[in-house]
Each structure stands twice: as C-alpha cells, then as structure tokens.
Design a protein around this nucleic acid. Sequence first.
RNA 1: GGAGAGAUGGCAGAGCGGCUGAAUGCGCACGAUUCGAAAUCGUGUUAUGGCUGAUACCCAUACAAGGGUUCAAAUCCCUUUCUCUCCGCCA
Length: 420
Amino acid sequence: MLDLKFVVENAQLVKEAMGTRSGEYDVDIVVELDKKRREILKEVEMLKAERNRVSAEVAVLKKNKQDASEIIAKMKEVGEKIKELDGALGPIEADLRMALLSIPNIPDKSVPLGKDDGDNVEIRKYLTPTQFDFTPKPHWEIGEGMGLLDPTTAGKITGARFTIYRGLGARLERAIYNFMLDTHTQNGYTEIFPPFMVNRDSMTGTGQLPKFEEDAYAVKNTDYFLVPTAEVPVTNMLRGDVVDADKLPIWYTAYTACFRGEAGSAGRDTRGLIRQHQFNKVELVKFCMPENSWDELESLTAEAELILQKLGIPYRVVCLSSGDLGFSSAKTYDIEVWMPSYGRYVEISSCSNFVDYQARRMNIKYRTREGKTGFVHTLNGSGLAVGRTTAAILENFQNADGSVRVPEVLIPYMGTDIIK
RNA sequence: GGAGAGAUGGCAGAGCGGCUGAAUGCGCACGAUUCGAAAUCGUGUUAUGGCUGAUACCCAUACAAGGGUUCAAAUCCCUUUCUCUCCGCCA
C-alpha cells in the first residue's frame, strides 16, 4: 500500500497517477476518512492523557493509605467516554486501511502512458520469429499427437483447463523447471521450496486480497488458499521482519505449482497449455535496499531472459504501459516468447519492481549498522512459466516429420535429443 | 487427535496489577584510551500515530493477535494463531 501521509498530503498527485492506470480508484475517501480519524484521535488522546495523569495520582494516594474513591469515580466516567470514542475510531481505521489497500501502486515516471497492452513499448528482441519450410502445428496437436499431453483424461479426473503430461511430455516439463532452478541457483539465487497453500495474511501481503479473491482457490474448512504464484509464499517469508541491511539483497528462486481460477477469461486460450487452472512456474523474488531496486529490476529481467537465450527461443521484452500495469507494481517488463501457433509473442514472464508498496503492506524493513530503518524494496518475476515454455519448445523446435528437437541445454535432463 | 509448557526490544533474557517502554547481557553508534587495533571504561541506542517548519519538545499507543475486568494491565480472565515437550497416528 501507499504511505497514508503521502496520499493525504499529495492527494492531487496520487489522483493523477491513478488516472493513468486502468480502473477507478477512490483517493478522496482516504483523505476524508483520515480527517475524521484525526479529529477523534485528538479528543481521545487528550482524555487518555488525563486518565494516565490521574491514575498516577491514585497510585500515590493508595500508597499513603489515603482515600481516592472520589477521583476514581470521576475517572470511571472518563473511561467510559474513552471507550465510546475508541469504539467509533475502530471502524473508521478499518475502513481507512481497506480504502488504502484498494489503491494500487503509483507507476514509475519511466512507465509509458497508455490505455492497455496495445500501448506497451517493445524494449528489445532476441532472435527473429522461427521460420518453417512446412506448416507448423500448434503445440496441443503435437502434444496430443505423440501422447505427451492429455487434456481429455484430465477433464475426466478433474475438469476443464487441466492437463495430464505423460512420458517424455512429463519428463520435458520436469527437465525445464530443473534446468531453470539450476540456472538461477548458479546465478546466486537461493532455492526455496515453499508450501503450496498460504493463509489470508499472506495473500493480503502480496496484494491478491482483498481485491481479487474470486481469482484464488480457497481450501474448504480452512482459511488457506492455493498459491496463485510462488511470489506469495516466498515474499511473505519476510513479512513483519526487520532485516539487517548487510544481508540485502536477498535473492530467492522457487518452483511451485500455481493455481488460478482465471475468472473472466472464459473462452480465451482454451486449447493447449497457455491458460490452465494449475500450471508450473519457477519464480524469482528479490528483497533489496531502496536505492538499488531499479538496477535489480534490470538484472532480474536479464536473469529470466537468460533461460530463453540458453534454450534458443525467440522472444521480446516489452515495458508495460500504465494502463496494463499490475496492481502492486511500479514498473513491469513482460518477456514474451514467440508462439508460432498464435503468430505472435505470448507472455511467459512478468518482472516487476514493487518498490516499497508490498513492503509497507507486509511491514518488511531493513536496519542499517547505524540503526536507521526503512522499508525494503521487493521485486519478482517469472523465471519462467514452465507450461508455456513447454509449449514454446514443442512449437519452435518441431520438425516436418512431427518430431521435436530437444534444446541442447535440456538434453542432459531429457536423456534424449529428440522427442518422437 | 490427547496432555502439558510457552510467545517480551535487532538477538538472548528478567519482570507477573500502579514507581516498567520495559532490568541485565549481546549487538550497534559516539567518545576516552592507542601509532592503529583488540581488550577496557564512559555515554547513548524501539517502533507507530498525533501535534509541528522540524528526524526537536510534548502527548498517545504498542510486551504474539483480538476481546474483557479495573481508576490503572506486559502482569488477571476469555478467544484465536503459532512454537516446544510427551503420547497416539501416519508418508
């Protein structure tokens, strides 16, 4: 969340920033609630100061065995008044927090202004779109044709938007996330294997709640949620902590299955691995000092790109426009992989700098040697979405005879150089 | 699932109705000492909110979280969460 003081003192600026995003956000309500809160607060704090003062007098009287019943009776009234005002304050503060949580991050100055993904700006490109001297097949045809992917049986045992991987298909998926984890740990990331279920506080900490509860899978009879991304458990590892500045930056990488309701995407990408309710992803998460977060965003993006470079798959990097920016993010680069069946680039990673937005929400602070504290900056990015990588490999490395070449770096993991 | 113990500052650990925002130790900062350092000595060192030009003063709040008792709660009561020990069960 944003800093309350900042919002109240710069309401106009915040409103303008919200205007560049998609969606409507109520900044005025925050200002109003804060004003109300402060009015009551002043009154109740005065009463409390009086109570504290008089209570000290009572202590002295009692010590000297003197009668204090008169002022005790008077303080009882003050106590009731305090209780009343505190009672009024509670709901206002709760509303205020909710209102503040409902306001997204302010886009960084460098973010291109725009309405939606049509205004995203291409930053760089790697390789050129794959050319074929035959008509390439989409990955779901390749996968189902060779028995690597089986959405039909998955539909029977679970439902739509699930897939069973079989044989070399399952092996390929596993090879990919092992290769990703190995690459990232060699680059200095610490591997984390977190729980796949998290509590409500964690979902709120990273911003999935309260606004997007319908996208999440809740576990019945508990207050747990299936993780929509490893970002949630991994970023929340430091929730409420004060970290020694010397220990920063912290780089974590984690594989998890990810579970998403995909509310509002009915009819989109219904075939293949692009949009599933359960998919595998390797995530990159960073915690750093505020002054380093923009450099860390560049390196994090490069580290995610490295996977596609090593695999040899064409991609491009785009900077999301203000209108396409995620709720908690100040700036996001999407990495988009070339997908022949779509005839365009498809998102495979989203690398974001949240600056202090998540840290304030989660109360993650640093402490320097000199004792100075402040909110850390948090970043994360996919490194990468595994299912989409599988799809991209099947499509970009397919041969005319229907077989699929295994990328060089995956051969040790696959035990073969060809899938047929 | 059953029985018991516990949760206090960056860390360790006292306190168990008023004089405790919190002893003591560690860590850290500054100073003394030193050619410099170690050791030693001295001083200081929580956060959030209100007020404010102010990171100054003053005021309020906070001892897992939430509620209650009381003039007054880290201290008493209730609920929840988490941790540990023993038993059971299980991969």
